[in-house]
């Protein structure tokens, strides 16, 4: 479904991704871990089409197409969903209105009829149960004044409503209390199918107790230096990233 080859990307002239390779198949869950500033959000942003990031080399094939050729909204309509590490506030625009606009934009792109208010609300209510979100948040402006945890749940609600093919969760677990973590993880698990795939970026092995990954990758300094199964996460938890850093000692690479 997704094939990333030798991906290089820059931010403000500074190279952040230095050759990422990653293959994700339908039905799989991949976890990406790595130290702060190693480029995890950059990778997520590049996949979603954030203009800030300039791709300098490599390619990304998604459902047989060159993903990098598509605009951010085309990618979204093609089923790429990014749960933001820091969800954005949009004052004055109600959460429901935003979600309906998003869903109908995606449906329109796919040649489906737009949902009317009644059908839409029924769908949202169903999905809200999945993330156990307070009903009042629907009528509030998008993310404005939401607590950290409420914002993260809102991201998952959006994901549930939009039902993406490729979900990328950027530290959705940060800032969640234990109960919320379980609820969000449950939500993700329920959305899981043989048709779609999920990439979760996280710092904590804890999340992976709830969302069991098929693969764990360690991203250090813009490269995936190690891949393994879920046990790799335990290893990282125990030993930190230092040993992984050594895996790609620049001196060693030059040699």
């Amino acid at each position: 479904m997704l094939e990333i080859r030798n991906l290089h990307a820059r931010v403000e002239g500074k190279e952040i991704l230095k050759g990422v390779d990653l293959t994700v198949n339908a039905g799989e869950i991949h976890a990406i871990m790595g130290p702060n500033g190693s480029g995890k959000s950059t990778l997520a942003g590049v996949l979603a089409g954030r203009e800030l990031y300039e791709v300098t080399d490599g390619e990304v094939i998604y459902k047989g197409r060159n993903l990098l050729d598509l605009s951010p909204e085309e990618r979204a309509c093609e089923g790429v969903f990014l749960a933001f590490q820091y969800p954005i506030e949009i004052p004055g625009v109600s959460n429901t209105y935003f979600l309906k606009a998003a869903l109908n934009a995606v449906r329109k792109y796919r040649g489906l009829a737009e949902l009317d208010a009644v059908d839409f609300l029924a769908l949202v209510k169903e999905k809200m149960q999945l993330v156990e979100m307070k009903h009042e948040l629907l009528n509030r402006p998008v993310n404005e004044g939401f607590s950290g945890g409420e914002k993260k749940r809102n991201e998952i609600l959006q994901m549930a409503v939009l039902n993406p093919t490729l979900g990328i969760l950027d530290e959705t677990d940060s800032g969640l209390d234990i109960d919320a973590l379980r609820i969000v993880a449950n939500g993700v698990n329920k959305l899981r199918s043989t048709e779609n795939a999920t990439v979760v970026v996280t710092h904590y092995q804890r999340l992976l107790n709830y969302i069991i990954p098929d693969f764990v990758h360690v991203l250090v300094d813009g490269r995936i230096v190690k891949s393994g199964d879920k046990d790799l996460a335990f290893h990282l938890e125990e030993h930190g990233y230092d040993w992984a850093r050594e895996l790609h000692d620049p001196a060693e690479q030059e040699a």
């Binding site: 951010p72 309509c77 209105y97 935003f98 934009a105």
Partner: peptide
């Protein structure tokens, strides 16, 4: 804000309008 809307499938034009 615009990117957030784009990422949810909403075009830039509609996003500006909405915001």
């Amino acid at each position: 804000q615009i990117f957030y809307c784009n990422q949810r499938g909403i075009s830039t034009e509609d996003a500006v309008n909405m915001i």
